[in-house]
């Protein structure tokens, strides 16, 4: 078996008496697309933030490309982040910067690239997500939700990362735009040969972009398997989630 690009081993994280992650074990191999399903409050976002190093786990270990990065800071952390991309749920574009500076942010700031060259790279990358050069000088607030997601995708892929995280990439989009974003994600992740971890509760999106699907419930991974057997998982929790039923072992979070 090849060495996983990212591996979480028994990761636990609590906020006061709220045990959000109760021992998460998950790994993703290079080039693999893993989708993690989970309802509201299942700990998806916290898991992602731990994997990205935005939070430090209370216990457990995180390995990136074989190295223990659980407590890494400074240069080592930056070296890891340079090989990762992240698409935030809300896009998280910087309001104060025009679109192209958002896309080229890492090139301009961390890599000190010349502005003209960085802009050229940004416009090339925008083309990959089907956005024209004409929007490069607009500000994020002037774009529609779908366009913002595409700009955020361009920002995540511009440095050709080996691992890309997608936090609910289709949330808040209409079904047609959502499908277009799914297509772009598949196309761009394939083109880079990158691994991807997507967290979502959108089944249409999960079916489309996943090689493998895992389910996070109450802070633990309770099921994992190939995407094509998701309808016959043999797991009541997964079954309830996949079919979106209010009745079953999972209590609706209302």
């Amino acid at each position: 078996m090849t060495q996983p690009i990212l591996e979480l081993k028994d990761v636990k994280k609590s906020f006061g008496s709220n045990h959000v992650l109760r021992g998460v074990n998950i790994d993703v191999s290079p080039g693999q697309s893993l989708v993690i399903l989970g309802g509201s409050g299942s700990g998806k976002s916290v898991m992602l933030k731990n994997a990205l190093g935005l939070m430090t786990p209370d216990s457990g270990k995180i390995f990136f490309d074989g190295d223990d990065v659980t407590h890494e800071q400074g240069k080592e952390r930056e070296a890891m982040r340079a090989r990762m991309g992240m698409l935030f749920q809300s896009g998280a574009l910087f309001d104060s910067l025009p679109v192209w500076e958002n896309v080229a942010f890492r090139l301009l700031n961390a890599e000190k690239m010349k502005r003209a060259e960085a802009k050229e790279r940004a416009i090339d990358t925008l083309k990959k997500v089907r956005l024209g050069a004409s929007i490069a000088d607009l500000y994020p607030a002037e774009l529609s939700g779908g366009m913002q997601k595409r700009v955020a995708l361009a920002r995540a892929i511009i440095t050709k990362p080996e691992l890309i995280f997608f936090d609910e990439p289709t949330t808040g989009l209409d079904p047609i735009t959502a499908d277009a974003i799914n297509d772009l994600i598949i196309e761009q992740v394939k083109a880079l040969g990158a691994a991807s971890i997507s967290i979502t509760h959108d089944m249409a999106s999960a079916r489309k972009i996943a090689d493998e699907i895992a389910m996070l419930f109450e802070g633990e991974i309770i099921w994992r398997g190939p995407a094509d057997i998701i309808d016959n998982s043999g797991n009541d929790y997964v079954d309830q989630f996949v079919h979106g039923r209010a009745e079953g072992p999972i209590q609706p979070a209302i």
């Binding site: 998280a92 700031n109 961390a110 920002r155």
Partner: peptide
């Protein structure tokens, strides 16, 4: 505050920009 709640500060960190410096 608005940058924090729209995850822009997290985004800065993932793009290797230190919020204290930037």
């Amino acid at each position: 505050g608005a940058m924090k709640v729209t995850e822009q500060i997290d985004a800065l960190k993932t793009l290797s920009a230190n919020p204290f410096r930037y």
